[in-house]
Design a binder for these strands. Sequence first.
DNA 1: AGGTACTGTTCCACGATGCGGAACAGGGGT
DNA 2: ACCCCTGTTCCGCATCGTGGAACAGTACCT
Lengths: 247, 247
Amino acid sequence: MTVQSIERAFSILRALAIGPMGVTDLAERVDLPKSTVARLLASLDSQGVVTQDHSGGEYRLGEGLLEIAGAAQPGRNLVATARPHLIDLMEATGETAGISVVDNGSMYYLEHVEAESDIQVRNWTGDSAPLHSVPSGLVVLAHWPVTRLDSFLSHPLESSTRHTITDSDTIRASLSEIRELGYVWGYEEFAEGINSVAAPVISSSGGVEAAIHVHGPAYRFPQPDRTHDIGLQVSEAAKALSENLPP
Amino acid sequence: MTVQSIERAFSILRALAIGPMGVTDLAERVDLPKSTVARLLASLDSQGVVTQDHSGGEYRLGEGLLEIAGAAQPGRNLVATARPHLIDLMEATGETAGISVVDNGSMYYLEHVEAESDIQVRNWTGDSAPLHSVPSGLVVLAHWPVTRLDSFLSHPLESSTRHTITDSDTIRASLSEIRELGYVWGYEEFAEGINSVAAPVISSSGGVEAAIHVHGPAYRFPQPDRTHDIGLQVSEAAKALSENLPP
DNA sequence: AGGTACTGTTCCACGATGCGGAACAGGGGT
DNA sequence: ACCCCTGTTCCGCATCGTGGAACAGTACCT
């Protein structure tokens, strides 16, 4: 069913992820005979995923691992796990649902599930938006440690539309509300004619790496009496996703 | 000399680095029987380094790979980046300073900087301690999302010494205080005769992955009038480290 | 120097373990 | 209904990995 050597190889890699170690320590840690660990390490070494400092020294994780992992674009299967939730949201609201991640100081749109409607927001996948100008960015900011938030807000904030909020104090004030509520609405702050709600996806380490959201044309979305209702749905979906995240 | 299955497993991973593929394509690419590839994939899947979209679908590289690879660089120089701060702390307090990370539900002691004193706590490097029994674990718990905290506290907590706090409500109550204060003292809770302070190292995503701490013999550490003073120093050091962490 | 206590590495007979051809099961497309 | 493709399971065979023990270095005390 499952291949023993692979299982063992990866427990070795995981052990090495903690820090460089020698064969003996490693063997004890993963509870395997030293000779076995040595052989597995030799194989992993020949694959370039581990290296030893000087011949006969400690082992550490190698470049080869980064080479492979580099291709695993951040959030590749975040998308896969998120999809079902996005589809639910889309069906519940009738509007486009999506997920985005923090990338290089902006929100990067990873995936979209389109509404079944003739008029809908365009596919934003692959684009980025400034954190302060989109709800998804705001929910991320709301969960950042203060020091990081301070340094972000200390740079001047640009406007995307005439509705964009660029005053750092106003933003700061809204963040605590966002933390309480669990979601936030944005009204044409990034693009004219588009409103959206977002909620944070929280990883098991407690950090916020992503947000999911629903976008719709401002003239019909949201129905004024459903803002809280829809906000809760997004928040629920985000919470559900947070819980069955891979790590 | 070299383990066949590992060699094969990594050629599969390398092939998947090109892009998501099905078993058949993959088998042809790496020139192996389909059944063999399927079995290897199943193993890799159980390790979380590959995932398939929907049961019976294509395979792609998984999050687990990033988890390991992420530690390839930053993990190794976490210690390097931390060292100067630990040395500062050690010199300021005259006691041993260290850094530990969460590993497999425990705090794992990564590195120690020894006090320049004849009597000092032993080198804890490489050992692990239950999260609830050490200050470093408590500061980590204090920054976990509630759902994860709940599941941790739902398991029975073991005592290490007669001072270990095992009541989940008592712990829960102390966590909010820890969040406010930024540090926490532990008095002989994990080992008799040892007191320690810890503060959380917060990554750029907002998650807590490590803690730094100062340990000393209970008879001289801390001087009762300096608990807050020393706590602040540890907290400052942790904050400083958090800020020049590699992303 | 001479020990001692480590380290990582190699050897090799044994048999558990992974191998792979072939048969199976489940979807989509036509 | 078919066909063709997918990923998955089965199972006997022997290859391949296993792990104890012996080896070979190296750093550290006496």
